[in-house]
Design a protein around this nucleic acid. Structure first.
Lengths: 211, 211
DNA sequence: TAGATTGTTAATCGATTAACAATC
DNA sequence: TAGATTGTTAATCGATTAACAATC
């Protein structure tokens, strides 16, 4: 009896993009699309699309492709955008403020329930309709409100300790903008890293190569 | 006579991380490190590190590993962090403001020389020491100042047109935070996409799978 | 029915890992 | 010299692509 293997990460990482394209097609009133037509739109091979979809049991119909509305809903369901997730944001500096005001959390099932910062000057000021709290209140807040996900917009140095505090408060998912190794201090938590500076360095490399 | 093949993209994407680790080691006064010790630090295999380094001609010494200072410098050179690059930022909303104030551009060789926004209310206000300009001034600014790189912090809809304007003004590299397909309208430009919302959706998937 | 297109299996391609002779 | 560790080649593993029978 073999365990059903989890979908490969490269496939998972393509899901949000599929979701975006199907949402867009739906908005444009497109009813069906073949893997062939979608492949041209997305710059993938039709084979890969069919292969990816089969991993998640997304079914089309021979002769007329995939139902746009149905597939969009399935992709959203696989990504669990419907599932309600309570989130806290740690760090209300430039990045934290931008993330809190720029992202469409609700559209992805996230509910931002608390914002924390170590700077006393920020405590009590309002961001996205929430009073910024002191990091000293974090542990008690977690116990009382049970957030599941934390967004780490703090510098690399304080990040591991804060992550551990959140972990001990029950948080098991981190959206990590720092360079700290969160996985190392939070076993069996999931960590999605966003390394903006790495991305900018890669651009520098690619640009120069291109010249 | 075969063309020397360009380094594979997965290897290139690991370079900034190597650079960060070597910079850190250097800061900590570490003189040498073996691929084995580094592999444990970074969570990679020693084989992969040696393989990656050999792609870029980074040499160690049998018996005592890689010279930290030297390797850090080589990695920085490969990433062209030394090379001066003039950049413009398009879009001074939440995200644009955060990026402009949060990122260490100088440390990566970037010089932010202009910020643009379509909102007349923002025109003339100061951000990172620069007067925000109207997008109507963009074409003339490019002709006069020759930026090489643009940071796109605008919504998806206006992004392609703005990118094309920049492209016509000589910009050949885009750090793209929108969902627009910039490559489609800017042939032979390099595009590094940052899709924050995709990242947040992946976290949602991974978290739920983990439960 | 005939044409289009899926779902899946097999083939290919590329990336990672293992092994080891060379050598500091 | 002996031990450690590289640089590189060969083996393995995994992901992508091609092919095609099934079928709407």
């Amino acid at each position: 009896m073999t365990e059903p293997t989890a979908p490969a990460l490269p496939v998972v990482r393509r899901l949000p993009r599929y979701y975006r394209f199907f949402s867009e097609l739906k908005k444009n009133g497109v009813k069906n699309i073949s893997s062939r037509a979608l492949s041209e739109l997305m710059g993938l091979t039709a084979s890969q699309i069919r292969q990816d979809f089969s991993v998640f049991g997304i079914k089309g119909q021979q002769g007329c492709g995939y139902d746009v509305t149905e597939t969009a809903a399935e992709l959203g369901g696989i990504l669990r955008l419907d599932r309600r997730k309570k989130a806290v944001l740690i760090g209300a500096g430039n990045l934290g403020r931008a993330i809190s005001e720029h992202m469409d959390f609700e559209g992805k099932g996230y509910e931002l329930i608390g914002i924390f910062d170590s700077d006393p000057a920020l405590t009590g000021t309002v961001l996205r309709g929430l009073n910024i709290m002191s990091e000293s209140e974090l542990a008690a807040f977690c116990l009382a409100n049970k957030p599941e996900i934390a967004i780490l917009c703090v510098p690399t140095e304080p990040a591991p300790e804060l992550a551990r505090l959140l972990y001990d408060g029950g948080v098991r998912a981190f959206w990590n903008f720092s360079h700290a190794n969160i996985a190392a201090v939070c076993p069996d938590a999931v960590v999605e890293n966003v390394h903006l500076s790495d991305s900018l360095m890669i651009l520098s490399y690619l640009y120069d190569k291109n010249c």
